[in-house]
Amino acid sequence: MSAAVSPPADVDSRRLAQREVAISVRRVAKTFGDRGEVQALEAVTFDVRRGEFVSLLGPSGCGKSTLLRIVAGLVASDPGGEIEVLGRLHVDVSDDVGVVFQTHNMLPWLDVEHNLRLAAEVRGMPKRELDPRIDELLAVLKLEAFRRSYPHELSGGMRQRAGLGQILALRPQVLLLDEPFGALDALTRDQLNIELLRIWQEMQQTVVLVTHSIPEAVFLSDRVLVMSDRPGRIVEQVEIDLPRPRNNATKATPRFGSLVVHLNDLMGVR
């Protein structure tokens, strides 16, 4: 076994390892079609600790998005599997969980501020609690100047940021991200990933990110779960022991490079 999967050495990761489990996935399988023709997931089992940033990495069509939707409670898994989120058996969408999808979630007829408010309003958050939070989010996401702009007036990056903001306004303990920046150009994507890390470090949510980008997974995560081709299952876990806070310089370190190469090997890229 290579050095990349050896036990974590630094203090930060050790402390992390002792934290309680936030998400527990046990033998979760999923077949599509009336007669179970297509097996998308095959008995997936993994844990995510509280405050941990975990990536699900796999080739397209490996069922990683389906797995995320099952964890979110949006899609039912086959009988026999079990999911616990924050200690509760998870059968439906829960108030502790926020989900951001690849396509932005903004309503074209609402301006940025009202889009940011949407999810929280729907969940019945009182106005006096929501107002200061929106102001804060607009500042954090650098969208203050676009408070009254409509989605079609924004760049793709700003739309995705506002989409993330709408979910952050819920203050979810668990954040599930399905390639939230997948549709953006590489430059914007890198920029947003750095912002995402900053926000995560401040708010300390538990994050599960679905991605097919190896450098992205390495840069963001505490741990990467590598999934196989369909039927998807987790074939390897890789602890990412890069020190935090991470920034662009992190990507130039030898450790970053060797982790990327190691994950490339695991995914069969030569």
């Binding site: 309503l107 729907v122 979910i167």
Partner: peptide, 14 residues
């Protein structure tokens, strides 16, 4: 109606 937005509304428990 956009299916992505319908899913989003489900995810925010509307």
């Amino acid at each position: 109606t956009s299916p992505a937005l319908i899913e989003h509304f489900r995810a925010i428990r509307a």
